[in-house]
């Protein structure tokens, strides 16, 4: 009975985090982006500085008609948003936010494998949407998504593998337990590669070629309306939370504080995740979209060699220590 309660409680907490954090990131994006452009952003919804803007957006999306195009592959079309969103919920279960067994939804022994594999499934939602919409823009978006996934999954995996090598384990809590402060400079290149590749996988600007609205309308999501469209948007923000959380855990030491100040535990994780989320927004505001060929060039000629170099460095240092 106690086990059931424990599992239920953990799932509820993870679910609440899954529902609220992406909205917080979204709201922050509204305001930060606005101020970076010299604007105020939402000011009315909720009364105080538009804090309820995303709630209002959600209500609006819920009111809209759920249209399925006549020529669309109905089942696949309707299933795609769920496929895009749910993997991030599953990943969230495995991310440890504090020390000990209590601060993670479920300890997965092959944590990195689980997390990266499930995150890859999320992109499948965009592919399904792109194909099932029976729309040339959606198809183009889907193809671009596929190309981007192929290009960026590799450096992301390599960078994560470097950390696994350094820690000698693929379990996320295990990596955190093995973490030392000097991993930060040691793995910095891997961290950059992982973060950039993760951004590209989320199709966040400046890597938003698959949804480039000025040329292919909204890519794979062109035909979506109402709640299903909102789910795709939510998936993007959930993806930001997951990516920032993962980068924190793998490269920034998760619940470890600077100078041995580990006492705050899960607060450190949240703080680092928040800073990374801000960085994601900041990058979006600052940089223009990469062209498709630039996108591929960055992945194959920069990120993959860098990730390989990082693995080599990790191996050398590891051997030298032993």
């Amino acid at each position: 009975m106690n086990d059931v309660l424990d599992v239920a409680l953990r799932l509820i907490v993870v679910f609440v985090v899954f529902l609220t954090f992406p909205l917080i990131v979204g709201q922050t994006e509204h305001k930060v982006m606005a101020h970076m452009q010299g604007r105020l952003g939402p000011m009315y919804a909720g009364g105080f500085h538009g804090w309820a803007q995303l709630v209002a957006d959600g209500v609006k999306f819920a009111q809209k008609e759920d249209v399925v195009p006549a020529a669309a592959d109905r089942r696949v079309f309707q299933l795609a948003p769920a496929v895009a969103l749910l993997p991030y919920l599953l990943v969230l279960v495995a991310i440890p936010i504090g020390p000990g067994e209590g601060a993670v939804g479920q300890v997965v022994d092959a944590g990195i494998f689980f997390v990266l594999a499930v995150m890859g499934v999320g992109v499948l939602g965009s592919l399904m949407a792109g194909w099932a919409s029976a729309n040339k823009f959606s198809l183009l978006g889907g193809l671009r998504t596929a190309a981007q996934l192929l290009a960026y999954e590799l450096p992301m995996l390599l960078a994560a593998a470097s950390v696994a090598m350094a820690a000698g384990t693929v379990s996320l809590p295990g990596i955190l337990n093995a973490f030392e402060w000097w991993w930060l400079p040691w793995q910095i290149v891997g961290a950059l590669v992982f973060f950039v590749a993760g951004l590209a996988e989320l199709q966040r600007p400046p890597f938003d070629m698959p949804v480039a609205d000025s040329e292919i309308i909204f890519g794979a999501y062109t035909e979506y309306t109402g709640l299903r469209f909102a789910l795709f948007l939510l998936a993007e923000y959930a993806g930001i939370v997951v990516l920032c959380g993962l980068t924190t855990v793998l490269f920034l030491g998760g619940w470890h504080g600077p100078f041995g100040a580990d006492g705050l535990g899960w607060l450190w994780t949240l703080l680092k995740t928040a800073i990374l989320a801000f960085l994601v927004i900041w990058l979006r505001v600052s940089y223009p979209r990469l062209r498709e060929d630039q996108l591929q060039k960055l992945a194959w000629t920069v990120l993959v060699p860098l990730a390989l170099a990082q693995i080599a460095l990790t191996g050398i240092v590891k051997v030298a220590i032993n």
Binding site: Q37, W282, L283, Y287
Partner: peptide
């Protein structure tokens, strides 16, 4: 150039907004 771009947006964020609240 990349750093300069980031600096521009960050600096703008700390400045007063120009939104007219009419």
């Amino acid at each position: 150039g990349l750093a300069k771009g980031l600096a521009v947006t960050l600096r703008t964020m700390t400045k007063k907004t120009v939104t007219a609240q009419y």
